[in-house]
């Protein structure tokens, strides 16, 4: 039986776990795949206080669905979450489809955060929080793993290889962005992450406003702004605009619009000049350079190298 500070793997965090593995001391990998119904005997119990959880969801992408002839639905999701395992209630992963998990012992991660002078980059109370898009290297790795058959004798080797690769990429990202300084409460973190998720659902409209968001999170405006920035290293507003423009880019390339102005309007930008300017500010090119008009075939999306599909 798991107590409050323990997580039992897999029942607790990942019902429907298809594969579990100790990759190396302090690193465990889990695959959750709902295309495979399989009961995993192993029910490992670890002390949550000693671990970070990294969660990768392959359904992370901007999804454009046609609802009817005139209306489109958009769905944009952040597919990568990394938090202290005690903060696991901060997010509710969708246990649909396919996801990949790493459980990382804190001392192990700490080892990879040492600067060249052996000065720990991370203080005792500092933590790691990520809730963002998966980088494409990680995504390709996991996509490749997904094409593998669990019954292949090489599956275990390949899961081990993939886990080490994904962990290495995570280490690189953490070293780029740095830890979140200071202690975080579970409730506050959960609230901040849930407002971030709310923002992701509102990308077609205008920024809901700090007032609204802080009320939603049950905090004062100043606390909300400070905490959001501490965790995500940017303000709620700039996060919102960045994600809005990511969506804009997908819409421009989707081939569902007759004019760039239509995309701007869809996202609530009334002045085409302003839309073009902030778009260029983020991507370094004008919307016109990526725009694909209705009726023209969209360019191929990122696909796996030919070989990796061959299993």
């Amino acid at each position: 039986m798991a107590t409050k500070d323990q997580i039992s793997v897999p029942r607790d965090i990942a019902q429907g776990c298809s594969y579990f593995m100790d990759v190396m001391p302090g690193l465990m990998a889990l695959v959750v795949d709902f295309s495979l119904q399989r009961s995993v005997e192993l029910n490992k119990v670890v002390n949550a206080e000693d671990f970070y959880i990294a969660y990768y969801d392959l359904s992370d992408e901007i999804d454009i669905q046609k609802i009817n002839d005139t209306k489109m639905g958009y769905h944009s999701k952040l597919g990568m979450v990394v938090v202290d395992a005690t903060l696991k209630s901060s997010y509710t992963p969708s246990l649909k489809m396919y996801s990949f998990w790493l459980l990382i012992a804190k001392p192990l991660l700490q080892k990879y955060l040492l600067g060249p002078t052996d000065n720990p980059k991370m203080g005792h109370n500092d933590t790691i929080v990520f809730s963002s898009h998966m980088d494409s290297r990680t995504r390709l790795c996991i996509l490749k793993l997904r094409t593998r058959n669990y019954n292949d004798p090489s599956f275990e080797l390949s899961l081990r290889g993939t886990s080490l690769q994904v962990f290495a990429y995570l280490v690189e990202r953490i070293n780029e962005s740095g830890p979140v300084l200071g202690k975080l409460s579970e409730l506050d973190t959960a609230q901040i992450i849930s407002t971030q998720a709310y923002l992701m659902e509102q990308l077609l409209g205008a920024f809901p406003g700090i007032d609204f968001l802080s009320t939603k999170a049950g905090m004062s405006i100043s606390k909300y702004k400070k905490l959001f920035k501490r965790i995500f290293k940017e303000s709620p507003n700039s996060f919102f605009i960045r994600e809005k423009l990511n969506l804009a880019q997908e819409l421009l390339k989707s081939g569902n619009f007759n004019a760039i102005n239509e995309v701007g309007k869809e996202l609530g930008y009334v002045k085409p000049g302003y839309f073009a300017a902030i778009y260029k500010n983020q991507f370094g090119q004008l919307p016109g350079e990526v725009f694909i008009k209705t009726g023209h075939k969209p360019k191929n999306r990122l696909t796996l190298p030919h070989d990796s599909r061959r299993i």
Partner: peptide, 25 residues
């Protein structure tokens, strides 16, 4: 020599072994 290099090198070793095994299969 970069911070993630040993992890990537280990990952490489396992991925290559997996591929060898596939080809043996």
């Amino acid at each position: 020599g970069s911070i993630s290099f040993n992890l990537l090198l280990s990952g490489l070793a396992y991925n290559l072994m997996a591929d060898c095994l596939d080809n043996i299969m």
